[in-house]
């Protein structure tokens, strides 16, 4: 079952420029499906349409065209949001509340019964590493702390679907690792997670599937292993050879005292293996593309932003 389904999602913005009203396309008929229990990454440059997509999914914005279904219900549907947790980008919360008061407020709004509220609030603050600072006023919190409190309010009601807009932003490396672990833990508990990010290494480590947006369109989408498709045209050979003689294959780089590595074309693989017969072969691996390479290739756009603007109305 798909937990998130978007079909032909379009969004136009109207921007005033003097007397003219320009219609700017933010999303171009986007199709998106996120299956139950998946960790789905929404990638793209600034302005690619990630946040607009998330806002359309949640009903904070009305799509100009297309339809959205969350957890099987046509959006906008307020009751579905009971089972959805959301962390906005660079969250800003009520400064006059403490961290605990804020998470309690959102727990109450999400319908957590009063008898369980205190326990659930403490548990979510603990999971996000904020229990020690639970009674700190939000106006005194750092950006990273606000991000953690934001995560705590998103998970306090045990949502089936978590939508996180740049969840790692503002976090230090340790914080990012903790959030990555939390996301994996939530998935193990049965949650489906959709998150947008700029940090490709996080997406690479976490996501089952990703979608790369470019100027409001889907530039690439698919399972991580499909996206980073294993290349059949290049292989990486690693071997160990005795003595201090030069590497058996030209172009090899030395990894350790007697250990070497080289990349060869598939057509030359058998020939290379034949040469290495006298050496100790450690590995033969097909080469993988990094997500960064895929991202750069997908987002290198021939269309400029100005081409997306339609005629003034």
């Amino acid at each position: 079952m798909n937990v998130v389904e978007a079909e032909g999602l379009k969004k136009h913005y109207h921007r005033r420029k003097g007397l003219h009203r320009n219609r700017q396309l933010a999303l171009h008929g986007l199709d998106l499906q996120v299956g139950e229990g998946e960790i789905f990454g929404l990638l793209g440059h600034n302005g690619a349409g990630k946040t607009t997509t998330i806002k359309c999914l949640l009903g904070l914005m009305r799509p100009s065209a297309g339809r959205v279904r969350l957890l099987g219900a046509e959006m906008p549907a307020s009751r579905v949001l009971k089972s959805v947790g959301y962390l906005p980008e660079s969250p800003y919360f009520y400064q006059y509340l403490t961290c605990r008061e804020l998470v309690t407020f959102y727990a109450a709004l999400a319908g957590v019964p009063a008898s369980q509220r205190s326990e659930r609030v403490n548990s979510s603050l603990l999971r996000t590493g904020m229990l020690a600072a639970a009674d700190m006023p939000l106006r005194k919190c750092s950006k990273g702390m606000l991000q953690r409190v934001g995560l705590a309010q998103a998970i306090v009601h045990g949502p089936q679907l978590l939508i996180l807009d740049e969840p790692m932003s503002g976090l230090d490396p340790l914080g990012r690792r903790e959030v990555r672990e939390l996301i994996l833990e939530l998935r193990r508990e049965g949650a489906t997670i959709l998150f947008s990010t700029h940090i490709l290494s996080d997406a690479e480590q976490l996501c089952d599937r990703v979608a790369i947006l470019r100027q409001g369109s889907l530039a690439a989408a698919g399972r991580m292993d499909e996206i980073l498709q294993v290349s059949q045209s290049q292989f990486e050979l690693t071997w160990r050879q005795e003595g201090s003689s030069p590497p058996l294959l030209s172009g090899a780089r030395q990894l350790a005292a007697s250990q070497f590595q080289v990349q060869v074309a598939a057509s030359q693989l058998w020939q290379a293996l034949h040469v290495l017969q006298g050496a100790e072969l450690i590995s033969v691996q097909p080469l993988r593309r990094s997500l960064e390479e895929v991202f750069v290739a997908s987002t290198a756009s021939p269309t400029s932003a100005s081409q997306l603007q339609e005629a003034p109305q």
Binding site: K55, L81, F93
Partner: peptide, 14 residues
């Protein structure tokens, strides 16, 4: 302006 409305309306609140 402070975007607190995002988190509010992302809850079951009309």
């Amino acid at each position: 302006e402070r975007r607190t409305i995002y988190t509010l309306l992302a809850h079951p609140v009309a």
